[in-house]
Design a protein around this nucleic acid. Sequence first.
DNA 1: GAGGCAATCTTGTCAGTGTCAAGTTGCGCG
DNA 2: CGCGCAACTTGACACTGACAAGATTGCCTC
Lengths: 194, 194
Amino acid sequence: MAPADTDSTKPAARRPYHHGDLRRAILTAALDVIAADGPAALSLRDLARRAGVSHAAPAHHFKDRTGLLTSIAAEGFGLLATTLREAPDLKEAGVRYVRFAREHPAHFQVMFTPGLLRADDLELTTARALAGDALRDSVSAVDPGDVDPRLAGVAAWSLAHGFATLLLSHNLDGPVGAQDPEEVFRTLAATLFR
Amino acid sequence: MAPADTDSTKPAARRPYHHGDLRRAILTAALDVIAADGPAALSLRDLARRAGVSHAAPAHHFKDRTGLLTSIAAEGFGLLATTLREAPDLKEAGVRYVRFAREHPAHFQVMFTPGLLRADDLELTTARALAGDALRDSVSAVDPGDVDPRLAGVAAWSLAHGFATLLLSHNLDGPVGAQDPEEVFRTLAATLFR
DNA sequence: GAGGCAATCTTGTCAGTGTCAAGTTGCGCG
DNA sequence: CGCGCAACTTGACACTGACAAGATTGCCTC
């Protein structure tokens, strides 16, 4: 309850005002709820309660329920873009795509559910474009071979996205079992893209 | 508006009672809403209004909002199973998987969003198992070659599912463009599984 | 260093929703 | 003929998202 650090030096970024970092608090609480019970279980009032603020406080940071989810999606695409950029080659990019979905299930789920998002939001569209660029670059880095690069991109993305989605929806619990999903995907991609 | 057939012969199945086939009416209305605006936009009271019944009527056929969605998912898995059974080979099964997603977007969406469903529902689990069997049979029909058939199944499913999902979430509007998605998937599968 | 200003948060309210409980209707079957 | 049961209605309650209007507080300027 009592402030742990009363030193006057402001850490680095803007520490907003008089209550705390509400925006971030609500975001992380929302991510918890979504990861546990899906976006449908998310309630602004519940998030406000968890953060110890009044029921209308969230609306000031994210206007809407849709606004909150859109912010989450934008953040997700940003994270995904940097993740893909760190991959040395295409196959590894796929592995990290799957890892991203497992480590950020809430982001992932929201990112690919357009019905929840404000499609024309600027932050969202730019972040998504950035992630798209990262994916395209990964594809073009591979030896062009004889296939249409755009088709190859769709193939790689479909494979990784399908695997990740089925994984999150517990549809691979049987086939994959106790094995490490990333390793399964690695061998899968290797046999397919040989 | 007026009943077209007033003949006393009951068609074949149980024509319920004094109002009409409410269960089916609510199901199809729900599918319309979900296809248009996603499962989040679905309201039992709205469905009741469309069917011209009182707000609590749907609860008698599907207990819950979750119950309604679970029924939709079960129906979807049933449809998917028969669809897959009709395919001559594995690649064609993939094509029909994609076609299924396009023709039944509401079913597809709900089927793979576990947060909306009653996971232990009997109808659902049996229908899902049936679809799983159909998929497995399609995979085992192909020349076993040198790869683990279970891995091959996961690969094929991931590819088709990822493609379908990305298609429905409008993430392939750019790369695929005006081309026929099924044809794109066909060539994609051909180059990948050569 | 004092005043004001804008961002942040609160309080109050409204329509809409899911769900439960209890009543009503009407068909079918004995 | 009447009785039972499934299908539906009516009513109520707690909860939610959204909006409007007011209160608080940190910061910036002069």
